[in-house]
């Protein structure tokens, strides 16, 4: 009888814990969206921010966030894919492979602020570039690389063995097999992983404080020459991203409408991350359907 009661109590406790976790997420999301929803006007999303006065928008920050994400992924995805291919297809069990795995583990567990400091040391000071989008993107590449290598390695490993054998048995080289059979088969899984990683990069701030900086120069959105100083596309300019902006307005608080700007920015950030997440799920389920359907 006693153990029955204990069992019931335990079940109740675990259910309560699950309810708490769900409540926390729902609470967080609804709080952010409720507070921020009214601020999501086109004007707020597109106008430049203001340093001291009220009424600034987040146009530049939003652009910077997506632009840094794009540059980061352009560097990190090929490297992650290369590393993943190496680990899945070429690495032989042994000391060197173990060492690379340890390196990936170390990179993955580094605090992002430490990566930011390293980025400052190398990509800001040593190179003499100063705070730039490119420095930020390189720091984010280091931040992101371990995840991408794992995603790509797992995706390639999960391609059925018989696909690889079929290609090799036709007298096709290993590399050509990787290029034309393994990567296309693994592509949807890789894409899902890349989108999820993008969400992480999009929301990252600590690694960018000392690499891409806390400011954005005046941008001229009619100038699309990437080598021009006022061009938004110039990768050698400082760029404050949305996540960094949220941190900055909250901690420095120089503008009178901190609350409104932070509310709106957080809502945009959360919505973007949700979007990345939903996109990844949608692609995942699409692929699942395609794989399980007869045709």
């Amino acid at each position: 009888m006693n153990s029955r009661v204990a069992n019931k109590i335990a079940t109740g406790v675990f259910t309560a814990i699950a309810a708490i976790i769900i409540f926390v997420l729902v609470g967080l999301l609804s709080y952010i969206l409720y507070r921020g929803f009214g601020k999501l006007t086109l004007d707020f999303l597109t106008s430049p921010s203001s340093d001291f006065q009220a009424g600034g928008g987040i146009g530049n920050q939003l652009f910077n966030s997506f632009y840094i994400l794009l540059i980061t992924m352009m560097i990190a995805v090929p490297l992650g894919l290369g590393g993943g291919i190496y680990m899945a297809e070429y690495a032989k069990p042994g000391k060197i492979t173990d060492f690379i795995r340890s390196c990936i583990e170390v990179l993955a567990s580094l605090p992002s602020i430490v990566i930011g400091m390293f980025g400052m040391l190398i990509f800001v000071n040593l190179t003499g570039w100063g705070y730039t989008i490119f420095s930020g993107a390189l720091a984010l590449t280091i931040f992101n690389l371990p995840v991408l290598v794992r995603v790509c390695e797992d995706a390639i490993r999960s391609v059925p063995r018989d696909q690889k054998e079929a290609s090799l048995a036709l007298g096709i080289t290993h590399w050509h097999t990787i290029k034309t059979v393994l990567i296309p088969s693994a592509f949807p899984t890789i894409l899902t992983g890349v989108i999820l990683a993008s969400g992480r990069v999009f929301g990252e701030a600590a690694a960018l404080l000392f690499t891409a900086g806390l400011t954005t120069p005046r941008l001229d959105f009619s100038n699309w020459n990437p080598f021009d100083e006022t061009s938004p596309l110039n990768i050698f300019r400082p760029a404050e991203t949305l996540a960094v902006h949220i941190w900055k307005v909250n901690t420095q608080g120089l503008i009178p409408d901190v609350q409104e700007v932070a509310d709106g920015s957080s809502a945009v950030l959360i919505l973007s991350v949700l979007l990345f997440n939903l996109l990844a799920r949608w692609i995942g389920s699409l692929v699942h359907k395609k794989l399980t359907a007869a045709k």
Binding site: I21, V24, L25, L28, L29, I32, L196, G199, R200, F202, G203, E204, A205, A206, A243, V244, I246, W247, S266, L269, I270, V273, L274, F276, N277
Partner: peptide, 9 residues
Amino acid sequence: LLVGIPSVV
């Protein structure tokens, strides 16, 4: 989703 929420948020 909780994993995905950025730390500044």
